[in-house]
């Protein structure tokens, strides 16, 4: 290859490379930002996506903060712990949203957007915690109301003179009381299981432990729910017995006997 050919090759190479640079420069660099600019478009899309996701999370967190503030049966310390976690996460997400809104270049925005999945790891722990605590509070409130109903039923059952009806009603009252007690124990246990959990921070061992704890608490919740429904069914049986008894009317019988309402 002579010198002339080498020079020609270099020249062609130079022209091609310059063309590539020219094409590339129409998309990035110091060109004015317009809506047609792919970088601007990507910036807007990612910004909108990030803002939407953060807003959804913040709405959910705020809903739980309102709900948890109204809980009655959960201890102040337990309420305070979960409220603090929720407020901290809300603060982090809010600061991230402010930063994302202010971002003007895609590289920074992408870096900030990557913080959302990181906060999601915390979100995915705190939100089930808040849901479990909310459930437990309602379950404990229902159990307390059932205990009051139990007292009323006890008085009514004691006044029954028909031994068979009384015995059956008492059995159901025992079931009622036992199920209420079991439900309370399980609801409280569910809260105790999840209240001390900390975000895993990417540690797989902690992540597994957290997931196992949440599942365990979830199982307790399901059992508490089933206990309360069993208690409700037992109360229904007692009410049926009481109602049937009071509906026995005085009826003239052929032998002159009558069946009177009992008690």
């Amino acid at each position: 290859m002579n010198v002339k050919n080498i020079f020609s090759l270099f020249l062609v190479f130079a022209i091609l490379a310059s063309a590539a640079a020219a094409i590339a420069q129409t998309n990035v660099g110091d060109t004015p930002v317009t809506s047609q600019n792919p970088q601007t478009s990507a910036l807007e899309i990612l910004k909108q996506k990030s803002e939407t996701e953060i807003a959804q999370k913040l709405n959910k967190i705020n809903e739980f903060l309102v709900r948890i503030n109204l809980l009655k049966k959960i201890s102040g310390a337990q309420k305070g712990a979960i409220q603090q976690e929720l407020q901290s996460l809300a603060g982090t997400l809010d600061a991230l949203r402010t930063k994302i809104i202010a971002d003007t270049d895609l590289a920074t925005l992408k870096k900030d957007a990557l913080e959302i999945p990181k906060s999601s790891r915390i979100y995915l722990l705190i939100m089930p915690q808040a849901a479990i605590i909310s459930f437990s509070d309602r379950a404990l409130s229902i159990a307390e109301a059932m205990e009051k109903i139990s007292e009323k039923l006890y008085t009514r059952i004691n006044a029954i003179t028909d031994d068979e009806i009384k015995s059956s009603a008492q059995e159901n009252l025992t079931i009622f009381d036992t199920k209420i007690s079991d439900a309370k124990t399980k609801a409280q246990s569910a809260v105790e299981i999840i209240i001390g959990l900390k975000p895993d921070g990417g540690n797989q061992t902690i992540l597994k432990a957290n997931n196992a704890a949440l599942k365990s608490a979830r199982a307790k919740i399901k059992e508490a729910d089933a206990d309360l429904r069993s208690a409700r069914n037992a109360a229904g049986e007692i009410l049926k017995a009481l109602k049937a008894r009071s509906e026995i009317k005085v009826q003239p019988q052929g032998n002159g006997q009558s069946t009177a309402p009992q008690n």
């Binding site: 999945p117 999601s120 995915l124």
Partner: peptide
């Protein structure tokens, strides 16, 4: 950047 998560 995968912004979306299961929650969304």
């Amino acid at each position: 950047v995968e912004v979306d998560t299961a929650s969304q």
